[in-house]
């Protein structure tokens, strides 16, 4: 499912929502989560999961082509931990 399919499904399942409104809702949610993460905040959505920012340490790596050692700086990444309800539903689902 892509973002546009999610938007479509949302407007389908709620008669308050046209496609425009659905798009606004989905973008507002994603922007909200993204902004919180940029500020280093944790986002917890009960039953779904939580997003946190994790730091990856600086490390040495090799350019696989030249064999040269390169320094990779520490960086941050978004980490998602699946919530209990969703974890169980995914595991028991018929996918």
């Amino acid at each position: 499912m892509t973002k546009s399919e999610l938007i479509e499904k949302l407007s389908y399942s709620n008669n308050l929502l046209g496609k425009k409104e659905s798009e606004l809702v989905v973008n507002t949610l994603l922007d909200g989560i993204r902004n919180a993460l940029v500020e280093g905040q944790r986002v917890e959505i009960r039953g779904f999961g939580s997003f946190t920012v994790r730091t990856r340490d600086a490390r040495e790596a090799r350019n696989p082509k030249s064999g040269e050692v390169v320094q990779i700086a520490a960086k941050k990444t978004a980490f998602f931990k699946t919530g209990k309800e969703l974890r169980e539903r995914v595991d028991n689902g018929n996918g």
């Binding site: 892509t2 999610l6 949302l10 998602f80 309800e85 969703l86 996918g95």
Partner: peptide, 28 residues
């Protein structure tokens, strides 16, 4: 209700084993 519905839609999609690709955000 609408926010709940968005996450419910995502959960039932993932429950079916289907992936979700949100451009500019990430993939589940």
């Amino acid at each position: 209700q609408i926010v709940e519905m968005v996450f419910d839609l995502m959960k039932s999609t993932l429950e079916k084993g289907e992936k979700i690709k949100l451009a500019g955000f990430g993939n589940f």
